[in-house]
Design a binder for these strands. Sequence first.
DNA 1: TTTGTAATAT
DNA 2: GATATTACAA
Length: 420
Amino acid sequence: MSVSSNILKENSRDLLREEEPGDDEVEFPINDEDEDFSITSIRIVLVDSDPESLCLMKNLMTQYSYQVRDFKNGAEAIAFLMMSKHEIDLVIWDFHVPEINGLEALKTIGKEMDLPVVIMSHEHKKKTVMESTKRGSCNFLLKPVSKEIIAVLWQHVYRKRVSIYSVESNPEENVGLDQDDIDLYQTNSNSGEQTSSYQKEGKNKKPRMTWTPELHQLFEKAVEKMGGVEQAVPKQILKCMQEEKDAEGLTRNNVASHLQKYRLNSGKKSSMIQETREDSEWRNAGPNTALTASKPLPNSIFGLHTRVPYFANDQDARNGPMQYPSTNYFTMDNGHFMTNSFANLPYTDSFHQQQQQQFQHQQYSNSSLQLPSVITKQEFPYVSAALENPDLIANENSLYMDLGDYLQEGLSDFDKTNRY
DNA sequence: TTTGTAATAT
DNA sequence: GATATTACAA
C-alpha cells in the first residue's frame, strides 16, 4: 500500500515535461510491469484555451501526481492524441475551446480512440452539462476545479483499466456515425419483439420478475393487513395482492421468495441498531477535516460509473435505484453535479426509506472530501497517495445542480442515448 | 398442499 | 454482490 504511493510520487517527479514544439514523438514513460494493478502514474491530456486556467489546473494536477500534457489549442491536442492515444489515460477538455469545443472533442475522441473524457467549463448551464453527458463525457467539472475533484480523477482511469463492466458497446455500429446519431442506441425500445440470444429454439425462458416499488407497496400492504411479517403467508398475500390490483403473472413462489427476503430484511433492521463509534466519528467529521480521508470508505456495491444507466422511462429512472439498489443506480461522480437520483426523491413507505437511508449512509454524506461513494480496497492506495498532503485539501466550490430539474429534462434524453 | 429454507442461477 | 428461481425438507 505504501509502496504504491511511493511509486506514484517518484514517478511524478521526473515524468513531467514541457511540450516541445516539433517533438511529435512525445511519449510518457510507460512501464506497466502490471502486477496486480500497478498503475505507475496517470497520464492526462488537458485542453483549455484559457492559459491561466490551464496553468492553474495543470499545477494542481501535478501536485496530485498526475502526468499532465496540456494544450491550449484543440487541434494540436487532437493531433497529439491521435498519435499517443495508447499512452494516455484520460482527457480533460474545456467545453469552450474555440476550434474544437467539448462536444466535438467528445465526438472525435469517442470515434477515434477509447479514452475517458472529462469535460470542464466555467459555467454549468443545463444545456452544457446535458450535452456533454449525452455525448459521453464521464464527468463534468465546474471551473475552477477544486482539489478534491482533482484528487479523485484517477478513478475514471482506474475503472477503465480494471474494466469491471467491460464496455461491450458494439463498436462497429459506432463507426462513421454523425453528430446526429444521438438515437443510435434506440434499437429495441419499442419495436415489438426482441430476438435476443437467449431465445433459442422456441424455448423462451420465463422472464425474471422484478419487484417494482408499486408491487412492493402492494405486497407490504397485504402483509400489513394480515398482521405483520411473521404472520403473513405467501398464498394469502398473493390473493390479497391480486384482489387489490391485477398482478398478472405473479406466482405464489414469487411472493414467497420476496417474503423471504423481506423477513430477512426486517429482522436485520431491528438488530442493527448501532454504528460503531469509529463510524460515527467518520460520518460526523466536519467538512474540512482532511484527516478523515484516511479512513477507507466502505467497500460496497455502490460507486461511480462513467456511464449513465439506462432506464426505460422517467419513472423507472426514479424508481430504479430503489428497485435495484445493487444494479441500477444513477450514480455520477464527486457529489458535485451528479448524485444518486433517490436523493431528491423521498420515499414514503418504510421499506424504501430504509433502503434510502442505507444508500445515503454509504453515499457521499460520510465523506468530507466528496469522494465517490465507494472506494474498494484496491482503489484506496491511489486516493490516499493523492491525499497524503493535507494542505492540498480544501473545501470549495460546492455546486449543485438541482437534480429534480436535471432528471426531468435529462432522463428522457438519457433514455434514448444511453444503455446500460 | 403449502411453507420455510437453502442452493442455484442470473 | 444481490436478487430471483428452483429444489426440497418439514
